[in-house]
Design a protein around this nucleic acid. Structure first.
Lengths: 178, 178
DNA sequence: AAATTTATAAACTTTTTATTTTACAAACTT
DNA sequence: AAGTTTGTAAAATAAAAAGTTTATAAATTT
């Protein structure tokens, strides 16, 4: 463990990147996405697919997929620099903004997937109520499910409101940045 | 698709469970955990490992692992019922509380893992500053990393505060349940 | 206390996800 | 317009996660 100061620092920098990669998994993104984010973040400057490939030791194709995922998640951007032909990718330098982007991307996706579901379910349930031969017990079951559907809808409405609460920055009014 | 009303309802109930399972993945838990949650939730009563095994078609051992994970995540509880020898497991019936439990469990784990890291890093960096032979450029790099460490610490402090904001129910003051 | 039921642990198998390789199309240089 | 460079898609491979089976320990019943 008796390294040159410069080596030591590079080693520390790598540990930072690994930690970022590890933490990023809490958001449900792969360690590789986290690692690439960490690498660009620590680099403080936009990077090309080739540079990322070099740094991670992974294929350029994989880097292409990863940065695309990051752009979709709103945690990276393609940037232009005159004279440079290769695409350059940069990441958000603000932790809090990255948190908000990942949180909102994730939940927006989930909310989107649920929108149709509620409508479909209540339509089906009502159709059974109207057209089927139904005894007391069955009718009660259907009503329980209809109530469930309603609560479900309310919950997703709340989630959408929560996403806005983060995206708008309101959250920082009540949980201020230190 | 011309089923008996009862069949139709069972089918709808299954769709609910599948949707819950799918949604649960947004929290980073496996579909199986989500499915078990959904099954117990729709059942409205605590269930045994055998019943769960029957419902999911999975082994009892797997059910044992899954409910343990759920208890750890604070979204299920072992309950006692006199005269019943088998363990019974119940789940939170309130969507919002389940959201809070999963959100806080996840982030508490992440925060915990980062606590030591910051201390270790700044100690290492300071030690290099004191003991190594360091030129201008190197010193600047170290200071950048020290600053990074500080910001990191602030960010995790903010996250801890955010977790409290949810856990205490404060969030519902500003993003009220519908 | 022998037999049965229940829960968990460990080893193994299957399925899913991550990554690489290969191949190709689009854009750019000369 | 021929030759490069760059980015993406599709197929193949490798690694990780989920699930099952077998074995065993603890508790319960008879």
């Amino acid at each position: 463990m008796d390294e040159e100061p410069l080596e030591k620092i590079n080693h520390i920098q790598e540990q930072f990147v690994e930690k970022i990669a590890d933490n990023m998994q809490t958001f449900g993104v792969s360690a590789t996405v986290g690692r690439v984010l960490g690498i660009i973040y620590m680099n403080r400057r936009p990077m090309t697919l080739d540079e990322l490939s070099e740094e991670t030791g992974m294929s350029k194709t994989r880097m292409s997929q990863v940065v695309r995922e990051m752009v979709d998640l709103n945690i990276a951007d393609k940037v232009f620099e005159k004279g440079v032909r290769k695409d350059l990718y940069n990441v958000e330098q603000d932790y809090y903004q990255t948190f908000v982007s990942l949180f909102t991307s994730n939940w927006r996706k989930a909310i989107q997937k649920n929108k149709m579901f509620e409508k479909k379910m209540s339509a089906e349930l009502k159709s059974i109520l109207e057209h089927g031969t139904i005894d007391e017990e069955l009718e009660q079951k259907i009503n329980v499910l209809l109530k469930e559907t309603k609560e479900w809808l309310d919950y997703y409405y709340w989630l959408a409101r929560l996403v806005e609460f983060f995206d708008s920055g309101e959250i920082f009014k009540y949980v201020p940045k230190p």
